[in-house]
Design a protein around this nucleic acid. Structure first.
Lengths: 345, 345
DNA sequence: CAGCGTGATGCACACGTGTGCAGACCGGGT
DNA sequence: ACCCGGTCTGCACACGTGTGCATCACGCTG
């Protein structure tokens, strides 16, 4: 059996309320008594029951985290940031992966509500707005990561993807590329659209047109999908001289596909990624990418949510808040002057 | 306010006990009443309070998962397997990363105990036996993944690393390698020792000796550590013709280091990994590795734990159980006949 | 008509913790 | 002697759910 405050009360000869107060550090209890009680608690290896406390206080000290998939390194790093911040504040994490499956999402939401999670952080790109509304109706503080459906929720934190994508594109244009394609992931919703928008904006600013077939979407994030997508692009009548990939995962597949097609990166074709996941530094050639501060995004999201929790009990409705983080262009070796231009030098 | 069974009781004109029974599907309640109650519950958007239930039943429907680090793809995939199995059985996951930090581990354990987690799965390589004992004393069912300190716990599930490592080593020996080095991760405890043992056993079986300086350990799992380690090995007076790496993460760093040193893999030197993480198929050259069934390991661990939970309430002590899973050698392009041998052909 | 069994429901308590309120105790000032 | 204020502690109830037991209505049998 686990020991309870009643056991401690019996042993120290006080009431269980006194024990409760003493352990919570209530100044009502005299120092001497509190000391005795703490001592006894330690000796009896007392551990408070989170269930009982949460039942009484309506606070679970748990944050829910909904993520598209755990084994995507991008999300892993964000979760890492969340965990750091949560841990520090004495909160625990309740993590679940939606796997782009609506039925599964529904179960996750239900579970989080049943556990009376204090708040929820959504990093799932495919999160439906119906389900978001459902959470909101229950009064859950929600923070959205990565701009996903941010208009429905009031608190969000995201990376400036449009700007990042513009920088990537600018970099390629500066190198002399004119025929640039975009490879997106149709499952990534808003994020892929933002990056596409940045790409288009910068191309347009440079007076360059984008043939329809140069914008291609695949339905997943793995390198395998990157290979599929680049297969398509490389087999166009007019293949591009550079491919802007939605993220590093796809780019890694693109690199492999190019190699298999006998193309040398970056001499024959340039490839860019996005996110700067760990492995992007170890591809061959190392990937030019946009370094998104993933860990900061996670920890900022957690902090924002925690702030909301501190304020909400008053019933005070916060101002909607958006935090935008900026990353930086990381030029490595997968991009270079296109061969056509090089030959004219 | 959230609705409770009392609210439903008031609305349907029955007692709260009847509601409780009806919703739990107790056959004591007449079909008609149960139907009315279920209907009302749905209309009122009732969601049971996990805290209250868990307080009363002493079951939280939550499994604790302790992992070394979330952003290591190897662990991510194991967690993925755990989640699949847990979700199916109606259990939730409580994930925490120890980051090889004992203080942090202590906090994690405490949190899990306070939440009265139904059971714990430990995937953390650096988990101290003190803390394990602490968990056991509290009567937690524990399943250990990857052989880590399995002798202290009664239920474990792991991959046959010794055999896998032998196969990898055998493969290199068959190719003609005689000067083979092992690059381990000193933080991975038992796992790295098993793989080292397999390596040594197979080398010995082939009548080959291993110079002391051919066994080298680094203190982490990132590719960067792999680069550090291979830097050491390549600068020996007698550098090896093949490097057996503890895992893919290290191997990925080794590949990069070799390239930077102007060495061609596999023509100049062979490199092997272990685990078959997603990226090992996309390195250049694609990595020869040992495919460990990570997802199965996770789901098997969860299933074993769930079995324990079903049985334990009776107080019946289970037989200790070890489940050993086997993987398979995956020969890709990072290994080849050593140049010295090739030249004599 | 009494007695009994059966099926459906309510009563009351329990789980472990937190908290408003009352009350006990003590010392000091009139 | 009385009162007052301050300090400390206990009583009792609450949180939402689950469950043993008593209760009640009903129909059947002898």
């Amino acid at each position: 059996m686990t020991t309870t405050i009643k056991d401690i009360a019996k042993r120290t000869g006080v009431s269980h309320s006194t024990v409760s107060r003493a352990l919570r550090g209530d100044p009502l209890i005299s120092f001497e008594t509190a000391k005795r009680i703490r001592q006894a608690a330690k000796e009896m290896a007392y551990l408070p029951s989170a269930a009982a406390r949460s039942l009484k206080t309506n606070r679970s000290q748990v944050l829910g985290v909904i993520v598209s998939s755990i084994d995507d390194p991008f999300f892993s790093e964000i979760v890492f940031g969340i965990e750091e911040a949560a841990q520090e504040a004495g909160y625990r994490l309740f993590i679940a992966a939606s796997q782009h499956d609506p039925a599964r999402e529904q179960k996750i939401i239900q579970a989080m509500m049943e556990h009376r999670t204090d708040g929820v952080i959504i990093c799932s790109s495919s999160f439906s707005s119906d389900q978001g509304r459902q959470l909101l109706e229950y009064g859950f503080p929600i923070v959205v990561v990565n701009h996903q459906g941010a208009e429905n929720f009031h608190y969000s934190i995201f990376h400036d993807d449009i700007n990042g994508s513009r920088q990537i594109t600018r970099h390629l244009i500066d190198l002399g590329h004119r025929k640039v394609a975009y490879l997106g992931n149709s499952l990534s919703g808003r994020t892929t659209l933002d990056r596409l928008a940045g790409f288009q904006a910068e191309m347009q600013a440079a007076g360059l047109t984008i043939p329809d077939e140069y914008v291609h979407h695949v339905a997943g994030n793995s390198p395998q999908f990157g290979m599929d997508g680049s297969n398509y692009l490389l087999n166009l009548k007019q293949p591009p001289t550079a491919i802007v990939c939605f993220n590093d995962m796809l780019a890694i597949g693109v690199l492999k596909c190019c190699r298999q097609a006998g193309l040398n990166v970056p001499d024959d074709i340039s490839v860019t990624g996005f996110d700067n996941i760990t492995f992007s530094a170890y591809t061959h050639p190392p990937l030019t990418t946009f370094d998104q501060p993933k860990q900061s995004i996670g920890s900022e999201a957690a902090r924002l949510l925690l702030d909301l929790l501190d304020a909400n009990p008053n019933g005070a409705v916060f101002q909607p808040k958006e935090i935008v983080l900026k990353g930086r262009l990381l030029v490595r070796d997968s991009t270079a002057v296109p061969s056509a231009v090089r030959n004219t030098l």
